[in-house]
Every structure is written in C-alpha cells, then in structure tokens.
Amino acid sequence: MPGEETKAADKRVSLWAIARVFLQVGAFSFGGGVTGWMHRLTVTRLGWLSEGQFLSGLALGQVLPGANVTNMAVYIGQVLRGSVGALVALVCVLTGPFFLVIALASVYDDVIKLPGFHSAMDGIAATAVGMVLRMAFAGAAHGCREFSMGLMAFCVFVAIGILQWPLVPVVAVLAPLSIALAWPRGEA
C-alpha cells in the first residue's frame, strides 16, 4: 500500500468523493466564483488541501494558459489522486455547467422578458464575487501573516487590479521576489 500510513494528513481521498465534490462545484457555482466554491469545499469544509497547497496551485493556474477553473480542478485532482484524479475533477467540474449553460440559453429569450430577471442575473453575478473575496480573505489570513508577504499581495493587487498592468510581466517580477523572501533561512 504505497503512500498509506505515512502521516494522518495523507489519507487517500476516493475518486468518487472527488467526483461528487467537483460535480457539486460545477452545478452550484451560479454567477461564477467557481474557485471560491472549490476553496470552500476542499480547504475549509473537507480539509483535503492546506491553504498553502491551494493558493500556490491557484497562482500556478493563473500563470498557465487556460481557465482558472479547469486548471484548479486539474491541480486539486492531481494533488489528491494523480492524473486519474485530475481527469475526474476536470470532467466533473465541466459536466454540470455544460448542460446548465445550454439549458439557460434555450430558455433565455423567454425568461429575459420576465420582470426583474435581468436584475436578478446581475445580482447573482455581483454576489458571486463575494465567494471569491471570501477565499481571498481566508488566503490573506493564512498567507500574508508576515509583513513582506502582505506587501507582495498588495503590490500584485495594485499593479494588476488598479493599474491594470498585464499579468505575466507583473507575476514574472514579483513571484521570484516573493519566493526568495519565503526561502527558509538559516538551513542552507
């Protein structure tokens, strides 16, 4: 039984459990905020990943091409159960949305005429941003405890969020700096 009983934290998550969680994420994430849902379920509720594991995967997923949602599903699946886990998470996170998005599109011309429907859609999209913010708050509480780390997060936020500089050069400069600052000192 390779990998078993190394540490209590290394308990194996079943493929079925991965499928169930990612089907849920896919079907529930109205208005977006999908990575926020993943964080809520896999880190906060189930404790499958540590905050650090999740956040570093999120950063990798943003720098790599592809939707953050699918990259994150692949990463979480890979960490939990290797390539098979990654494939299961990817397929499951897309299955619900595939049918739901087409279902909504088929009735769109009718429902859009309902009073208030458009505003309700706007409200759901605005509120879903809160799912992502919750993840950012939790991440900041964990990952920015040192002043230097908080400063890094702040610089990334200002450069990309406020000044709207392109992502790749900003991360290419700040990520190595942040990693250098995080390098364990004293034990060469």
Binding site: S56, L58, L60, Q62, G143, M152, I160, Q164, S178
Partner: peptide, 21 residues
C-alpha cells in the same frame, strides 16, 4: 519556498480578479 511565496501572489491575483469583474 514556492508554496509559501506563491500564496500572497495568489491572494493579490484573486483580489485583482474580483475588481476586474
């Protein structure tokens, strides 16, 4: 080191993403 150093980068990116939405 990568895991620890990338965490604040992710936090900044998520906040920036929220603003852009």
């Amino acid at each position: 080191a990568l895991e620890k150093g990338l965490a604040p980068i992710a936090v900044g990116l998520v906040m920036a993403g929220a603003i852009s939405i």
